[in-house]
């Protein structure tokens, strides 16, 4: 029985153990893997007697000696700890998602935004509301210097005139208020053209480009209203903007569903368009595309398959690609206070609708009980702010005992609400997928770290927190 203070993992034959409360990662052999299934830090004799039929006793004693050394160094069986004092009770705004268009020129079958209108009327944000939102962000962020604004929809480019005004205003206010604003725009790509690409590049706007894999899969899920596929139009735009940025400052982001569980192949098809890739599971309840229990073993095998290809290419066999969920920095990363805050929805992060309503995040838009105010009134639900702030991995019963808690930050509140009707109850299906891809990420980055220590070129991904890299003249290569 594995001790809850550690987690062992196997990915494609490679093994590692995570010391949950310190973050230490160790690559291990099979004997250590088996020993840690019994050993709890104190029961040496029981461990030897349990495993002596499989391993030589002197070797078992040697392994236990190594494990005791790690314990003395604070790298194994580290004890649990309390919420750090630095986790402030009063949150400070760090990011906003501006719904510049509750309208879209596509009719994607799984869209949580109800094909763009979020279940309401089709509506575009005005420049006045957009500017008010920028002011709300600057005021709410108080002395915090770094701010993030995501331009979202629907499809933001159906309202490009207003998008331009908002971006220009944000850059102006940024200087006046001595802020550093990271701007991101999420688009289906079909409306990208020379003019808007130039504008987005000139204004250092990161882009998230929605692509679901190869042509067949993408067209099946992401059609135009006349039911024709959008792949050709989207990829034309994506290739143009990626080339204009020398392969920097973008992510291709896809969604897999019950109809596309063999997603590894789709990810590899995406590498023909760009090398910065994220592919995420759809979240549903009863819709035909909803992932099922029977899909899970297939999905896990796909992550293993993708991990094999990812490692092979980073070790020199083919062109490396970036996969968002395999990006884990083992040497650094945010402090625990930051890990508890997670995405910040409902306390550090809000979504603003076209009419200026405030919701905890883009996925809560349209769920009336979560409306938190308007740009005119400000946030008028301190009860909700407090609830979101204090719903984290050290307060949620299921999260408290999960080994992945300091990596996942408790999962998505909106999914928990959608599936369980309660943000304090994690969406367990999503947790299982999250744990699988975290195991892949930890083992992959551990192997690449060891490669580096042994003298190979450092092929770990550059985790730049999706910050706009200025002045890149050479193609991105890892």
């Amino acid at each position: 029985m594995e001790n809850q203070l550690i987690h062992r993992m196997k990915v494609n034959g490679d093994m590692a153990v995570l010391d949950v409360n310190s973050g230490a990662v160790h690559l291990i052999d099979e004997m250590v893997y088996d020993v840690l299934g019994v050993f709890d830090g104190k029961n040496d004799e029981e461990t030897v007697s349990t495993l002596k039929n499989k391993y030589d006793e002197s070797e078992l004693v040697e392994v236990l000696g190594e494990l005791h050394e790690l314990m003395e160094e604070g790298l194994l069986f580290s004890p649990e700890f309390d919420v750090p004092e630095t986790f402030a009770t009063e949150p400070v705004l760090k990011s906003l998602c501006l719904h510049v268009a509750h309208d879209c020129n596509l009719r994607c079958k799984y869209c949580f935004a109800g094909t763009g209108d979020f279940g309401g009327k089709r509506e575009l944000m005005s420049a006045e509301t957009g500017k008010k939102a920028i002011d709300f962000a600057i005021t709410g962020s108080r002395k915090r210097r770094n701010l993030e604004i995501d331009l979202f929809g629907g499809e933001p480019l159906v309202n490009f005139g207003v998008v331009k005004e908002i971006i220009q205003y944000a850059r102006k206010r940024e200087k006046e208020a001595n802020k550093n604003i990271k701007l991101t725009l999420t688009t289906n790509g079909t409306l990208l053209n020379d003019e808007n690409i130039q504008f987005l590049n000139d204004n250092r706007v990161m882009v998230v480009l929605s692509l679901d894999g190869g042509k067949e899969m993408h067209d099946a899920m992401r059609p135009f209203p006349n039911k024709t596929g959008s792949y050709d139009a989207a990829v034309r735009g994506f290739k143009k903007i990626i080339a204009s940025r020398k392969g920097w400052n973008y992510y291709l982001r896809g969604t897999y569903t019950h109809f596309s569980t063999h997603f590894a192949e789709e990810v590899l098809k995406m590498t023909e368009v760009g090398k910065e890739i994220s592919m995420e599971p759809v979240v549903g309840t009863t819709e035909p595309y909803t992932l099922t229990e029977e899909d899970l073993p297939v999905l896990f095998a796909e992550y293993d398959k993708l991990a094999t290809e990812y490692l092979k290419r980073r070790r020199g066999e083919g062109e490396p690609f970036d996969f968002f969920h395999f990006n884990v920095a083992l040497d650094n990363g945010p402090c625990v206070a930051k890990r508890l805050a997670g995405c910040g929805a409902g306390h550090e992060y809000y979504a603003i609708t076209p009419s200026g309503e405030i919701y905890p995040c883009h996925q809560f838009v349209g769920r009336e009980q979560y409306k938190m105010g308007t740009l005119d009134t400000g946030v008028v639900r301190p009860d909700l702010v407090k609830k979101f702030r204090n719903t984290h991995v050290m307060t949620k019963p299921e999260c408290k005992k999960c080994w992945a808690r300091f990596f996942c930050s408790g999962g998505c509140h909106a999914n928990a609400d959608l599936v369980n009707g309660d943000i304090t109850k994690p969406y367990e299906y999503g947790c299982r997928i999250q744990r699988k891809r975290l195991e892949c990420a930890i083992v992959l980055q551990a192997l690449l770290t060891e490669d580096t220590k042994e003298g190979a070129e450092d092929m770990r991904p550059e985790i730049d927190n999706f910050k706009f890299q200025v002045g890149k003249t050479e193609e991105k290569r890892k």
Binding site: A24, D29, D331
Partner: peptide, 15 residues
């Protein structure tokens, strides 16, 4: 030098 364990990182959780 440990024979069975390679420590990859130094405990990062240990603002």
């Amino acid at each position: 030098m440990k024979k069975h364990v390679k420590t990859v990182n130094k405990a990062m959780l240990n603002g």
